[in-house]
Every structure is written in C-alpha cells, then in structure tokens.
Amino acid sequence: MSHESLASKQAASTRIGSISLKANRESFLVDEPIKLSLSFQVVGGFRDNFTQPVWEEAYKAHDVSLRLTCTVSFARKVGRVFSKKVGKPIRLVRKARLFWTRNPERFNKTWVMVIDENEVPTLPKSDAEAQSMLLDFVRTFDLLGTDLGKGEHSIVAKVRVKWGQHYYVPKGMVGATSPPLKIICK
C-alpha cells in the first residue's frame, strides 16, 4: 500500500474519543462564573501515524510544520435540540515542528517540538508523549451564569479539530459533541 493510501485510510479512521464535559458543581448563582472542564482526545489513524519513523519520512519531504486548529463552542438545549449558542466559540491552535535534533541520545535525526495553545514549547520524551501533547485536550472554560439565565439547563460542548495536508495525514476535520451536562442557575 502506498504511503498516500495508507495515510488516507488512517485519516478516515481518525475521530474524537473520550469526550467529557464536567462542572465543578451542579448548582450556581446566576452572577457567578461556571467553571467547566472539557476533555477529549483525537484518536485513530492520525494519532497512530504520528510517530518517529513517520516524522523521519515527513522531514525528508520537508514537511516540518503542523498546525492543528480546535474550535470549542457551547450550546444549550432549547426544546429537543441543542441549538442555542452559549458564549463565543473558542479557538485553540496547537503546532508541531519537526526538526533535526543533535541530541546524542537519539539514534534518529528527526524529533518533534509541540507548542500548545498557550504558546508553551515542549520537547516530548517519547512518541506517545508527543501524541498526547498534541492530541489530548484537557481545558477549563468559564461560562457566565447570565449566559444561561435562571433555571435548569442542559448544555453540551461541540468540538471541531482540523488540520492541513501532510505527509502523515491528508487534510481533514473531525468533530464531536459531549454528553449533556445539567446546570442549575439560581
């Protein structure tokens, strides 16, 4: 199988997994911030393919820079659907840079630096750590009680992750919606 068709097959299996949305408690006053914790992972082909041997090949093709854009939005249930947007969508950008390392402990030339959404650069110790740094998301968000209003609400987080064309994965986008979370605003 050619590398293109392999990458394509793996991209098709890429999805968002283990998505969860939690609040630090169920009940809030309407004028206080609601702290939400969202976590999810990008799993499947993209993740499985993001390994050192593939970085080596990508580097040879001068494909050295990856940009991953994640958009998170929240929605409240109105009637039977989650149609009412809550707050503004939040955009997070993560990057990976493949580079020729001179680390004498590494027997291969290519390694990766991951830059998170807060622009903190990190050199992972292993492929698995690189995958986790790039593709695992654990974030807290503040919603305002006034965004929801008084009453009992059911909210979800909608997540979209997209990336461009690369040696190890074709251009793509995956999305998911978290299970609903009950919030009471008093």
Partner: peptide, 13 residues
C-alpha cells in the same frame, strides 16, 4: 528563549 523557540522552523537545506 521560550518565546523565540516557538518560531523554530528548519529550512529547505
């Protein structure tokens, strides 16, 4: 150093 390192990009050689 941290800020600058986020611009690390290897060239075409």
């Amino acid at each position: 150093y941290q800020k600058f390192s986020t611009y690390w990009t290897d060239g075409k050689g």
